[in-house]
Amino acid sequence: MIVFDKVNKYYGDFHVLKNINLTINKGEVVVVIGPSGSGKSTLLRCINHLEAITEGSLTVNGISVSDKKTNINKLRREIGMVFQHFHLYPHKTVLQNIILAPMKVLGQTESQAKEIALKYLEKVGIADKAQSYPSQLSGGQQQRVAIARGLAMSPEIMLFDEPTSALDPEMIGEVLDVMKALAHEGMTMVVVTHEMGFAREVADRIVFLDQGQILEEAIPAEFYENPKEERAQLFLSRILNH
């Protein structure tokens, strides 16, 4: 469904992604971990073309992401994205945040879009906040709205870019619970996170990235019990034993 084939990306002279080969199948939950600055977010952001790749090929559903002929707006309908800092629209209510794209991009009527929005707000557990503004919500609530906003487009893929890193520790659970539920429903998910518990429990596959390279790719049990690469062993020992 998502195929990276010999993908390289440079920021000027800086080689951010090095020869990435990665295939993510439908219904799979892939968790990308690695030290900061290793290119995890860049990798994720290439999938919906928030970042452009420099070399190689990257396709989503067989459609090239970097090809100039590709209608990127159309491709992005299929790919929901959740950001570290939520990026809700502060001048719009929760409900307006969610119905915006379905109305403008999918052409739903307001009543259709509202009905769908409320369904997803219900799902993430904050239907009572539909008329609130984002600034009136806690971080965890805002992130759940952001997830509902992504889901309202009925995407085939959801991308999560460190969705819990900006949250108070108390709020992390509520967001992870929503993501777990989503994973169990069979959503294709690519998640950049430092939440090892989540990765271990939910991921079908762990991708370990260091200095722009995929060093290790394994199922969670294997990766956590018996990491092959020395860098991965070091990384795990640092974050698990503190």
Binding site: L50, N73, R76, M81, F83, L88, P90, A101, M153
Partner: peptide, 27 residues
């Protein structure tokens, strides 16, 4: 206006001009 606003809008499939008119300019 933080760059994330444009990114959020574009990643949901809005065109540049829609994102500008509906999300960025009102703020």
């Amino acid at each position: 206006i933080p760059e994330g606003q444009m990114e959020a809008a574009r990643s949901s499939g809005l065109t540049y001009s829609q994102a500008m008119r509906i999300v960025i300019l009102p703020q």
